[in-house]
Design a protein around this nucleic acid. Structure first.
Lengths: 388, 388
DNA sequence: TCGGGCTGTCCGAGGGTGTCG
DNA sequence: CCGACACCCTCGGACAGCCCG
């Protein structure tokens, strides 16, 4: 489909580098000039409301009314204007519209932190949804966020008259900073914590983590460790809470969670720490619930290095289900999160907010789905274990 | 003389708050509202050029001259104006500026394809570099790109007066489509192929791949297979070419490359295919050069499933050095690519282009750096091999 | 007295959006 | 219903006046 009509009137006749060969300038060209007026200089100027008005035989305000779907335009007139717009392939100027109305049909997207699988996919889906809803998105991404950068980004967006600012970042700190910045536009943030001051979109981290731990318990584990994401991550906090609560609900003992930074290397360190602490009195746990798949990979690596068999001696459960997880050694059991859905949810909330800021609700529904692969299994019985 | 009395006769507060009105009452009032004027309604209106002019005791043109760094402004005046701008924290209105000058200080970024590690990091670094250079970036991301979506994105950007369009996508097809779209702004694309019609930024894929294969040969391999990225990927094509050329340069035999889609699962399929095709007449290769780390993970998985030891029986080399690669089983030898550097390169080219479209050169310098870990080793000798 | 460097006034754009009549 | 008019905010060209050497 896409390939076929790629042939477009080959641009730049001058400067000489069109689609070199193949493209074959075939295409019936044309269409180019129908689009706008040609100034004496030869450059095409996009059609304006006035051009449309002239062609339709009305005033430019009427064109404006048609454009904004305002009442007070006879149907027949409306049609004439619409035809004129089509004929001239008229498109309103965003700059002029923004200047006059202070509305920009633009959403500001701030992405703070590493471009990991989750955030990247959510941002992409959000982007697609925004464009589908006819919004433009101006983006400010920053790996390291500090108050100054965040403030600069917000101010830049505000002066661009964005209609809403979306924050995709799991870091509590980024959210706190942005919440604190004086701004005149609504803020929609991905946040697992409901601290107020913004519109919230989230996945149900608590429930997802609970399901994971319940599963491990259901297959017989009673000593379940946890490798958590960074303390500043709201998602990590929720998962820790769910892990802890669930163990408590089953009256199971719990070890202190080991804190990582979402990266594999920290998972490796966590794995080594568990192994290093091992002694007759403190055996390895029989299962480890890891905060994300990347860290789980590191844990797997540490165990492999130490000759700890997974899931033979220890079961490992991840979180996220990144595409690679199915190919870890062993293939990782994990909780799948629908990041694309999250991205679409974000835009849905934005749209709600733009209609009525008061009535807009949050969206925190999506629950992860369990994917059982080969890194989890029932624990060996005491007998079998010592018989090793 | 202080700026305060520069003012024009205080106009009646009646007429609303346009630059047209007297803007009187300045005297003491100025200091009060440092940030902007307060309209009768109470909402703060951002300061305009006229406000700055009044405070600095000059005309708005002079402010404009200072703003645009035009000559013909006495140094002392310039300073006064700048102080006034600071005092009012004046920031020019992007919309008005764009409307009047047709320049927007905005770069359009089109990202086509999956948000993988490489593109995501390059895009992030580009974004940071753009903001550092005081440019705004409006983004259009699309997982699946077809001519229509791409065209829509370009048109949207053009009508927003972006000063350049950046395309981050390894897909030849996306590039071809965009090249073909009539547009009035320069296009800067990440592309490993120099087909003309746009400004090019790239990493030296050929050289990186050549180094990888040379390395395998240097440690004794003579039967080196290749698992390539999709045919539509320019990077993949370059790597295939380098692999093939290098084998030829050493007069080594070569197998047909197996095509994947960059994802682990396709790597797994490729691995199985190699194993399945094995028979006494067609033994496994002693080394596999894989197009990226994700697919290498899949290959490792397939080999593990089949009991093929890595690097004992087959060495595996990846490409990219994603953060997880160090934790694969075994830790993967690979070629590290500096995606952040690529992102910065993109912005550098954009800046060059904006200064002088003709003189701007391409940037295709960066070569990957080899990272040897545990998935590669010299092949076992024939004797040792059969002795297994 | 004259030539130049700074600045100010005076518009016309730029492409729309409101309100009023 | 629909047209007039004012306004959003900035750019930039035309032109004149001022100060200074």
């Amino acid at each position: 489909m896409s390939a076929t009509d790629a042939a477009e009137p080959a641009g730049a006749p001058a400067g000489g580098a069109g689609p070199a060969d193949g493209a074959g300038g075939a295409a019936a060209g044309v269409a180019a000039s129908v689009t706008g007026s040609v100034s004496p200089a030869g450059s095409v100027r996009a059609a304006t409301m006035f051009d449309v008005a002239r062609v339709a035989g009305v005033s430019h305000q009427t064109v404006s009314r048609v454009l904004n779907n305002l009442p007070g335009v006879r149907a027949s007139t409306r049609v004439r204007v619409e035809q004129a717009m089509t004929e001239l392939s008229y498109v309103p100027s965003p700059a002029a519209r923004t200047l006059a109305s202070r509305r920009s049909q633009t959403i500001g997207l701030i992405q703070a932190g590493r471009p990991d699988y989750g955030p990247s996919n959510a941002a992409l889906a959000f982007n697609e949804a925004a464009h589908a809803a006819n919004y433009t998105v101006t983006q400010a991404g920053m790996r390291d966020f500090d108050a100054a950068s965040l403030r600069a980004a917000v101010q830049m967006m505000v002066r661009h008259n964005v209609e809403a600012i979306v924050l995709i970042s799991g870091e509590r700190q980024a959210l706190d900073i942005i919440r604190g910045i004086e701004r005149s536009v609504p803020l929609i943030a991905v946040s697992s914590e409901d601290v107020g001051g913004f519109h919230r979109v989230a996945m149900n981290q608590y429930e997802g983590a609970r399901l994971a731990v319940e599963y491990l318990i259901s297959i017989g584990h009673t000593d379940i460790a946890h490798v958590a994401g960074p303390a500043d991550s709201m998602d990590a906090t929720e998962r820790v809470r769910a892990w802890s609560d669930t163990l408590a609900a089953h009256a199971l003992p719990q070890r202190p969670a080991i804190i990582g930074d979402w990266q594999s290397t920290s998972g490796y360190a966590a794995g080594r720490a568990m192994i290093g602490a091992r002694d007759p009195a403190h055996p390895l746990p029989t299962a480890v619930f890891v905060g994300n798949d990347q860290m789980a990979l590191g844990v797997l690596h540490a165990f492999r290095d130490a000759g700890v068999r997974v899931p033979g001696e220890v079961s490992v459960m991840g979180f996220d289900d990144i595409p690679e997880a199915a190919h870890f050694a062993p293939p990782l059991s994990t909780m799948r999160q629908d990041f694309s859905g999250l991205g679409r949810d974000i835009m849905a909330v934005v749209l709600d907010v733009l209609v009525d800021e008061q009535k807009a609700g949050d969206r925190a529904g999506r629950v992860s789905e369990m994917v059982v692969r080969e890194s989890t299994a029932p624990p060996r019985t005491g007998a079998a274990r010592s018989a090793r």
